[in-house]
């Protein structure tokens, strides 16, 4: 009887292990620049949280990795994927920001410097545990063994030389409060982090304001980029992601501004019709519900005045 149980357990664990494979396929998008494109869905047990774009750049000295993904398993899979492409060592991991889908794979990079803006490290220290807990709830066993690992190096915006590659680090804050965008000068690939979402509704927890975000977009668009890797959504070689972001942010801002002006309640706002032109953007209703929760209190307070006596 007992051996049947043991056998069953082994079978289960084998099946489970086979299931928890992210099957990461790096795609070369420019000379020595590789992209790992996630889906535009929400976090789910079916995708293990792989809804994010990560990437890496291979210099003559070694590899620079951009974001570590949503889990320890993802981080490890990313290391293996890199090793399949190049035998050069990983030199450094850069984090675009502190959100769980970008920074919870850090454990797999414990042997190299993990570099981020000071604000990113602070936000990850404050919110990391709670975000990781929520990820366990959302994607389940994919997260096994995942713990928050804080950056070990503080980045300052400006040029960064990695081997023979010269990068520009741009420090912004419109999406999360501390956002890093990375321009590879050699290839013209811009890793925009979550300042750019494309064909996927943008997320707003922690944004200091949509107006700041719009200003950040202006700075990014002015850079000499040739290709854009958004934080979520497909690679682009035109300004289409910028156009869509501006349109969408403007709409979101207008919905809440008008709502506050007209005395709308949150439950009324979250049922606002999504404009036809955003039909191709994944998860717009879901993210509208979230954004109203994050941001509407600011808009409504701005319209209220003291009435106590």
């Amino acid at each position: 009887m007992r051996w049947i149980l043991v056998l069953a357990l082994i079978c289960c664990s084998l099946a489970a292990r086979a299931d928890f494979d992210y099957r990461l396929e790096p795609r070369q998008i420019a000379e020595s620049v590789w992209l790992l494109e996630g889906s535009t869905d929400n976090f789910a047990a079916a995708n293990g949280g792989n809804i994010v774009n990560t990437g890496f750049i291979v210099s003559d000295q070694g590899v620079l990795v951009i974001d570590s993904g949503p889990s320890r398993r993802y981080g490890e899979a990313l290391r293996q994927a890199i090793a399949r492409v190049t035998d050069k060592p990983v030199l450094k991991l850069l984090l675009t920001h502190h959100h769980p889908d970008h920074a919870l794979g850090n454990q797999a990079f414990a042997d190299v410097p993990i570099a981020a803006l000071a604000g990113t490290t602070q936000l990850l220290a404050e919110q990391g545990e709670a975000m990781a807990e929520n990820m366990y709830r959302l994607v389940g066993d994919w997260m096994r063994g995942t713990e928050v690992r804080l950056p070990t190096e503080t980045l300052t915006p400006g040029p960064l030389q990695v081997g023979n590659r010269r990068l520009q680090l741009i420090g912004l804050r419109g999406h999360s409060g501390a956002d890093l965008a990375i321009l590879d000068e050699t290839s013209g690939v811009l890793f925009a982090g979550d300042l750019l979402f494309y064909q996927r509704a943008l997320t707003t927890p922690g944004t200091p304001g949509l107006d700041l975000w719009l200003a950040d977009l202006e700075r990014l668009q002015a850079l000499p980029w040739k290709q854009i890797v958004p934080g979520h959504g497909p690679l682009a070689s035109s300004a289409a992601p910028f156009k869509q972001m501006r349109d969408y942010l403007g709409w979101l801002d207008g919905v809440m501004r008008d709502g506050a002006e007209q005395g709308a309640e949150m439950n009324e706002l979250i049922r606002t019709p999504i404009p036809e032109r955003f039909a191709g953007i994944s998860l717009s209703r879901y993210e509208l519900i979230r954004s109203v929760s994050h941001l509407y209190p600011r808009y409504e307070r701005a319209r209220l005045r003291r009435v106590d006596r």
Binding site: Q262, R301, L304, R305, R306, V307, D308
Partner: peptide
Amino acid sequence: LGEVLGRRFVL
């Protein structure tokens, strides 16, 4: 404590 923000809106 007890400060009230408010406004009337025409629906």
